[in-house]
Design a protein around this nucleic acid. Structure first.
Length: 510
RNA sequence: GGCCCUGUAGCUCAACGGCAGAGCAGUUGACUCUUAAUCAAUUGGUUGGGGGUUCGAAUCCCUCCAGGGUCACCA
């Protein structure tokens, strides 16, 4: 079914489209004659004004292009603001300048949201606003559906007050293009996101890491405890998984002789959706040969502080009402001490799942039946994570939830692993990577014994990864960081959907 | 998945058992330096879908859909 107008405004705009066609005007021409961005045009005038003692400084003719974001027809003068990505500028259109015929077309067929180009010298209106003194104006793209109307008033202190808004969260996400078109602060979030990723790359590049790309479609998934999405290659008649982590591929590259590698890309986890979980999300993982998790803590706190400095111009950020100080060094505390401190439970005193579950029940913590000991400890951490506002490395995890990490010297039930938390959110996870192929195989088998088939922790054994490790993998540390959550922190957004251009939403029947 | 909240004009919202409204946008008219322009007139609705209660439902009940919050799940 071809589209049809569904309301008055759209019907009127279809009439206007026809009006343009009737006057032999292409409402969607191929070529644009733009000579200046909006900002360049304004700069041009300001330079001319500074250089000239004349009250009405002259500039060359400029041609600017953009979307009409305000219009105001006043008899035989038409004012409009057009916006491109560099800013907005006023068009000053007099009937005397463009002729009656063109003026009629403006009056009858130009709307908010249309893209137009306008040519003329720059000028300042009597009210003082820098404007294009329009001699020629042309439709570039007719807008048929109305964008939300947001009016803006510039206050004396230079800030602007906005009237009207497009704030319905669902519609903003479903129609992100409209959200971006009318909400400049949303555009800014995604500029910050882009700068964050670039800053991460710059930092790791300067530390000597190599950026790589590894398969998203994988015959065997692994590297994390999560349910995968499955798909199928028709011609190969092969089931494939969308990756849940990069871990096992990146470590193969250390076997191959790269000493530092990183990847920024998409992970897919077939699990619940929440304010901090999207089915696909952007992960950063980096692996460093000849280093352990202490080195990775040093590197990670430097990375986050450096990226914050480059992106936000500061290493302190305001998030959700708290001021977070990202300056190294960050607090480092073992998981055992943290839980002792916060919950007054020393889980080492309860070395079996049954005894630990019993004491957790006493403390009114939720416990599911038949939960392995390591997962119980993890749930203890979950109960306190929202208290970790300032950056905190939580160190040394139970071995049975950490199949890729080396055991600590002091305690064979624990491994050299850390997660780091900022503003109550887990931001990353890291290990001193296990590089003993025989132990790695044993850990895989152990996980298979501990967890049933349905459990997310029951990952299939990746034989090829074990083969790679048997060739010899250098001692190394590895870190994974949730990039979306980092962007949330930098932009003070409390929902991951605010930092994803097109967050996953259920399909809606129209 | 459980519980709570929300869904009314293009946008933002009101009406909460008794004629479905406002501002902005739109349309018509006036205005050759406006800027949240102003002034006058005016169009626009299956109140998310379906069912029920009632003389009468946007409003109360049931159900479905979508979203948000929270809990559970989730390295």
């Amino acid at each position: 079914m071809p589209w049809e107008p569904s309301n008055n405004v759209e019907r009127d705009r279809m009439d206007k489209l026809q009006f343009l066609l009737d006057h032999n005007i292409d409402p969607y021409p191929k070529r644009v004659e733009r000579t200046h961005s909006v900002q360049q045009a304004i700069d041009l005038f300001e330079v001319a004004e500074a250089d000239s003692s004349d009250e009405e400084p002259q500039t060359e003719t400029v041609t600017v292009a953009g979307r009409i974001v305000r219009q105001n027809l006043k008899g035989k003068v038409y004012f409009a603001h057009i916006a491109d990505e560099t800013g907005r500028v006023q068009l000053f259109v007099r009937i005397n300048s463009v002729g009656e015929e063109t003026f009629e077309i403006i009056k009858d067929a130009f709307d908010m949201g249309d893209f137009v180009q306008a040519s003329g010298p720059m000028m300042r209106t009597r009210a003082g606003e820098i404007s294009v003194n329009v001699q020629e104006i042309k439709m570039l793209a007719k807008s048929l559906s109305p964008l939300p109307v947001i009016k803006e008033r510039v206050l004396e202190d230079g800030t602007s007050e906005r009237y009207g808004e497009f704030s319905d969260v669902e519609e903003r996400y479903r129609q992100r293009y409209a959200d971006l078109a009318v909400n400049p602060d949303v555009r800014e979030v995604f500029r910050t996101r882009a700068r964050t990723i670039r800053a991460i790359q710059n930092f790791l590049d300067s530390e000597g890491f190599l950026e790589v790309e590894t398969p998203i479609l994988q015959p065997i998934y692994g590297g994390a405890a999560a349910r995968p999405f499955t798909t199928h290659h028709n011609q190969l008649k092969q089931d494939l998984f969308l990756r849940i982590s990069f871990e096992l591929y990146l470590k193969r590259l250390l076997v191959g002789g790269f000493d530092g590698v990183y990847e920024i890309g998409r992970d897919f986890r077939n699990e619940g959706v929440s304010f901090k979980h999207n089915p696909e999300f952007t992960m950063l993982e980096y692996y460093w040969a000849y280093r352990d998790y202490n080195d990775m803590m040093d590197l990670t706190e430097r990375l986050v502080a450096d990226v914050a400095q480059r992106v936000m111009g500061s290493t302190t950020v305001a998030f959700n009402g708290n001021v977070v100080n990202l300056n190294p060094p960050w607090r480092r505390i073992t998981m055992r001490d943290l839980i002792k401190q916060e919950l007054e439970i020393d889980y080492m005193e309860y070395p079996t799942a049954d005894s630990l579950a019993a004491v957790m029940k006493d403390e009114r913590l939720p416990v599911k039946p038949d939960t392995p000991w390591g997962k119980l400890v993890e749930e203890l951490l979950g109960a306190v994570e929202n208290r970790l506002i300032q950056p905190t490395f939580v160190m040394d995890y139970p071995v049975d939830i950490s199949p890729f990490a080396k055991r600590t010297d002091s305690d064979p039930t624990h491994v050299e692993r850390f997660e780091f938390y900022i503003s109550g959110m887990e931001m990353g996870n890291a290990f001193t990577e296990l590089n003993n192929p025989l132990q790695q195989e044993e850990r895989f088998l152990e996980m298979g014994r501990l967890y049933s088939e349905e459990d997310d922790d029951a990952a299939p054994i990746d034989e090829d990864y074990l083969r790679a490790m048997r060739y010899g993998m250098p001692p190394c540390g590895g870190v994974g960081i949730g990039v979306d959550r980092l962007v949330m922190l930098f932009t003070d957004r409390t929902s991951i959907r605010e930092v994803l251009l097109f967050p996953h939403l259920r399909v809606k029947d129209e």
